[in-house]
Design a protein around this nucleic acid. Structure first.
Lengths: 335, 335
DNA sequence: ACATTTTTCGAAAACGGTTTCGTAAAAAAA
DNA sequence: TTTTTTTACGAAACCGTTTTCGAAAAATGT
C-alpha cells in the first residue's frame, strides 16, 4: 500500500529510529543522512500515518468545532476564521452539528473523552440548560473554549461579543428615532446571548423611562413558519409595536414579509433592527439597520486562544473572557 | 489518564482480547462475560481510543469535506446535509477550505495519502484547471466524490445539479419576459458549473434567435468591490443590457446596489435572475427570481454515495453522475 | 467409556510511528 | 598516548486496539 518508515529504512540500510528522527530534523542525525532520508521520502512520496503518530504521541493535532448548525451566516463565517488559523498551525478541524439538540450535544461531547481531539471550540445548542457534559469533558483535562453562545457557569475561556451593549445601543437608537413601543423578538431563552441582548434591551427601556410589559418580549422558535405566524399576530394587533429588535438573523425575513403582507411601512409604521451578518442587509428595502457580530474575528481568536493553551503546557484556560464588539450599522429601517 | 481496555481486563481478571471481543459483541464470548464487560465499561466510562483502533483496522471512520469556502450559503447548507448522514453512519467529518486556491487544494489532497480519512467529498476551487492531484489520490485507492463543482476529466461519482438546463430555462424566462440584450455575469471560467451555466445561456439565446456578442458575457471575480465596479460600468453604458443572469450568489448584492445607485428599475429597466440559496430573496425589492440549488439534498446524497462505496468492498465509484434538479422560482425581479 | 465437536477464552503478533537508552566510532581534551 | 566527550546511530519498548491462532473446558455423539 502506501510507503512507510520501514520501507525507507530498508532502502537506505538504516533503522526505523534513524529515519523517524531524520524526518523530524533531530540533532542526533548527521546532515548527510538527513538529506538522504528527506530525498528518498520525497521521491517515494512518503506521508506519515497520522494515527500511528497520534497514538504514540498522545496528541492528535486536531480540534473539534461543535455548532448548532451552519445555517446562520454567523457560523459560516466563523468557520472560516477558525479554519484559517487551524491550517496555519497545522491542525485539522472536525466539525459536529448539534442541530440545537441537547442530547446530541451530550453524545458528541462524551465522544471527546476518547482523545480524538486535542481541544474543543463550542457554541452551545439552544436547548442546553445543564452544562454537566461540558464540565465533565473539561474536568477530564480537555481544553475547551466557548464562542458566541457560552455557558456562564462554566469556567473557561470565552469569546463573545458585547451583546448587552449592542442591544442596549440598538434599543436606544430606536427610542431616539421616536419609538414608544418596542418589542424584542427573542430566541431560545436558554441562550446566554439571548438573555444578554434581552437585558440590554430592558435596561435601555428603563433608562429612557419606557414601561416594559411582558408583552414587550415575544418568544420565537426555530420553526420558520411558526415565527411568521407569531410576528404576524404581533403586528396585526391594534396596539402593535412601533419598533422591533430581531435578536437573531433568521427573524429578519419573517419581519419584512409580515410588514409587506400587512402593508406596514418600515420605518414609517415599524422600525426594525436586526442582529445579522447577512450582506443582503444592504439591498433590502428599506436597507436594514443591523448589529453585525465580528464573526470571522471571533472564530479566529477563539481558535487562537485554544491553540495557545494547546502549545503551552502550563497555560490554563481561565475565566478570561474576550469581548469583541459588534457594530451597529444604521440604515433606513430604523430612522 | 482515561480508562483503557487493559484496565477493564485487570478488574475483571480477563484478557484484553476478551474485553475487546466482548465490546464488539463477538460470538466467541459468552453472554455472561459480555454483560460483565459492558457493565464495567459503562461504569468506568470507557471510550475506545480511536487512534489505536484506526491504526489497527486501517480505517478511520472519518471523511474529509473540502470546500472553497463557507461564505456561500450553498456550502453552508450542503454541510448540514453531509453531516446529517455522516453522524447517522457513525462517521466523523474533517473540513478543509481551499479559499479558492489551487496550491492549497493540492496540499490538502496530498495530505490525504496518509490515510487520515477513508473518503473525500470535494467541490473544487475556482483555480483548479489541472486535476492531477485529484487523480493521484483516487489512483491511490481513495474513494472520492465530487459535488457541485466537479472536474469533468476525472472519472468518479459526481453529484451535480442541472446547470445547463436551469440556466437555459432562466434565460428563456428572461427572453419571454421581453429581454433583448441579456448579459451573463460569469464567475471563474475554470469552473464546470460556470461553463455549464454559460452554455445553457448561450443555447437559449441561439434557440431564440438572439445574437450573442462577446460583450454579452462579463467576467466577475471574487473581489466584491471589483465586481461592483464591473457591474456598474456595465449598466452605465448606453446600450446596457435589459436582462442579467447572476451565475453565483455573491453577485446578487452588487447588482441590486448598482441598480439602486444608477436609478435603474428592476424589472422595468433590467430584469434579474440569480443563482442563490439565500432566503432573503423573498424580501428583496423587488423579490428576486432565483435558481436555487438543492444544497441539502446534494450534500446528503454525495455523502450517501460515498458511504456506499466505503461500506461495500467491491462497490466502485464509477462515472455515475447524479443530477438533482435546481428549481427556478419566478418572482418580481424578472417579470 | 471414549472420540469429537463446540464454546469460551488468552497469548501474542500486528498496525506504524516515537522515544528512551545504550553503544561504537570519531573527535576533542588531557 | 590515554581519557573523555561528542556524534551518529540502532534495539527495543511503547501507544491501545484488533485479530489470528491455539488450547482448555464443556457439550455432544457413539
Amino acid at each position: 500500500m502506501s510507503v512507510k518508515i520501514k520501507d525507507l529504512a530498508k532502502q537506505l540500510n538504516l533503522s526505523v529510529a534513524t529515519i523517524s528522527k531524520a524526518l523530524k530534523d533531530s540533532y542526533e542525525i548527521s546532515p548527510e543522512t538527513k538529506q538522504k532520508v528527506l530525498e528518498l521520502a520525497k521521491k517515494l512520496n512518503y506521508t506519515p500515518n497520522p494515527y500511528a503518530s497520534s497514538l504514540r504521541k498522545r496528541s492528535s493535532k486536531t480540534i473539534a468545532v461543535v455548532l448548532p448548525e451552519v445555517a446562520d451566516s454567523f457560523f459560516s463565517i466563523a468557520i472560516n476564521g477558525i479554519e484559517s488559523v487551524a491550517y496555519d498551525k497545522g491542525y485539522h478541524v472536525l466539525i459536529y452539528l448539534t442541530h440545537e439538540s441537547f442530547e446530541r450535544e451530550e453524545a458528541i461531547l462524551k465522544e471527546f473523552q476518547s482523545g480524538r481531539v486535542d481541544g474543543i471550540l463550542i457554541s452551545v445548542s439552544g436547548e442546553t440548560i445543564n452544562s454537566d457534559h461540558i464540565k465533565e469533558v473539561i474536568a477530564a483535562g480537555m481544553p475547551l473554549v466557548f464562542f458566541d453562545r457560552v455557558c456562564e457557569d462554566v469556567e473557561t475561556a470565552k469569546i463573545i461579543t458585547d451583546d448587552f451593549e449592542s442591544s442596549y445601543n440598538a434599543t436606544c437608537h430606536l427610542i431616539k428615532a421616536g419609538c414608544k413601543k418596542i418589542t424584542y423578538l427573542s430566541t431560545s431563552s436558554a441562550l446566554s446571548i439571548n438573555n444578554k441582548r434581552m437585558e440590554g434591551y430592558i435596561q435601555a427601556l428603563a433608562d429612557n423611562e419606557l414601561k416594559k410589559t411582558s408583552e414587550n418580549i415575544v418568544s420565537c422558535t426555530s420553526d420558520s413558519i411558526g415565527n411568521y405566524k407569531i410576528i404576524y399576530d404581533l403586528l396585526k394587533k391594534k396596539n402593535r409595536p412601533d419598533g422591533l429588535i430581531a435578536s437573531v438573523e433568521k427573524l429578519t425575513t419573517p419581519v419584512y414579509l409580515v410588514c409587506d403582507h400587512l402593508d406596514l411601512s418600515i420605518p414609517g409604521d415599524v422600525k426594525v433592527i436586526s442582529f445579522t451578518n447577512l450582506q443582503a442587509a444592504l439591498i433590502l428595502t428599506p436597507t436594514l439597520t443591523t448589529v453585525t457580530q465580528p464573526a470571522f474575528e471571533m472564530g479566529k481568536t477563539a481558535a487562537t486562544v485554544l491553540f495557545k493553551s494547546l502549545e503551552k503546557r502550563n497555560y490554563h484556560l481561565n475565566k478570561e473572557i474576550t469581548v469583541i464588539p459588534s457594530v451597529l450599522t444604521i440604515r433606513d429601517s430604523a430612522t
